[in-house]
Design a protein around this nucleic acid. Structure first.
Lengths: 211, 211
DNA sequence: GCCTGTGAATCCATTCACAGCT
DNA sequence: AGCTGTGAATGGATTCACAGGC
């Protein structure tokens, strides 16, 4: 019952935000939640919660609230996180290794099923979940074989663009970029950059402002 | 010459964004840049660039553009990234180790000068830059000794809140949180959450929307 | 009475368009 | 002529406030 008006990006971000406290709330025994309560857990305005959710349907019951388990399912449906996504990672130095080992990804359905590196020192390495690091030259073939949908770039900045191009060329439409470079991409593809120093810049700014 | 009207958060985020392409531009030999060019490098609107910068002063020359080296200095001054920040990290499993080794932090003036862990297996470990992992019980003392300003949390979610409280109690006003928990904090303190699965949720949503 | 869903009102951010300086 | 700086116009997003259903 998704309305065909434009849904703001910030709404998507907030809906993803709602997911986490909601899961905690369910775990702690809550079955029904009001927009007031959910808003409080997420530090947003209650009307905002209701409006955000109303973009996608009418999930609540007037006078009562939202049924938690149902809302969780709906949100996961909205975010398309109600299924597994097959991911490949390139670059298995410190960050790459940490990402592959990170449990949260799998818990949310993001599954690493292939790993690539250009460094002979890393190729052939055995990773958790039976993954073996393959050379970049195998990327396209493997991506097609395993129907990879998301590529994660954890290579040094110097080869990030080359690696991204390999992903794009293999038909992968979405890339999560942990390298410190801005990536050029075809119009059809999506890139999401993760740069920790951005977060620190923001913290530093706010720290500094309060003298 | 900072004006005392409220500066939007998004402006700060974009100003941090401008920094990186600007540095590249300077490295490739550019000395003067127009708002058009900078906007193109950052995928934003030229008027946006000018308005953002004008919140903080008049850095450009009409008819000419912005002097790159000067603009870099001004932006760093705005973000308070024209100096070193002393950081402590708690949690030295895979993510923590990757962060400590990550060169980008230091390059931007964010310096790890202390490391803490509760796991006896990690305590005493020697890290790059002469860091030695200390027990959490030493956190407060060390934080005060070294004038730590930013705390980085890379512990398991289960002890993230406890660790954050230690940082706050030691007088650290800013925390960068890599654990998958929402942290409670005193009003005077700042918390910035980093959750990679958020980025993936967003990618998944957009991937899914284009069928 | 209580809480959702939503039009209307408000608030804020972006973009336009041009005056003003070089 | 070229490009910045900025008031004014536009376009979105947030919040209010209440109608509508339990």
């Amino acid at each position: 019952m998704i309305k065909n008006i434009k849904i703001p990006d910030v709404t998507i971000e907030r809906v993803a935000l709602y997911l986490r406290p909601l899961e905690d709330y369910e775990k702690s025994g809550g079955h029904v939640i009001s927009s007031d309560k959910l808003a409080e857990l997420c530090n947003v305005n209650p009307a905002q919660v209701r409006k955000d959710l109303s973009f996608f349907g009418e999930f609540g019951v007037r006078g009562v609230g939202y049924e938690v388990s149902e809302l969780l399912i709906e949100i996961k449906k909205i975010l398309a996180s109600d299924r597994e996504w097959q991911m490949g990672i390139a670059g298995l130095d410190d960050i790459g290794m940490a990402l592959v080992q990170h449990k949260n990804f799998l818990h949310r359905g993001y599954k690493f099923v292939a790993a690539f590196d250009s460094n002979p020192r890393n190729i052939g390495k055995h990773l958790p979940m039976g993954l073996v690091v393959q050379p970049l030259s195998k990327l396209k073939e493997t991506a097609i074989d395993l129907s990879l949908e998301i590529g994660v770039i954890a290579t040094p900045a110097s080869i990030a663009q080359k690696t991204a191009d390999l992903f794009f060329d293999a038909g992968i439409l979405a890339v999560l970029n942990f390298s410190a470079t801005h990536l050029r991409k075809p119009d059809c593809c999506l890139v999401q950059n993760v740069d920790f120093t951005f977060n620190l810049d923001h913290l530093a700014y706010r720290l500094n402002k309060k003298k």
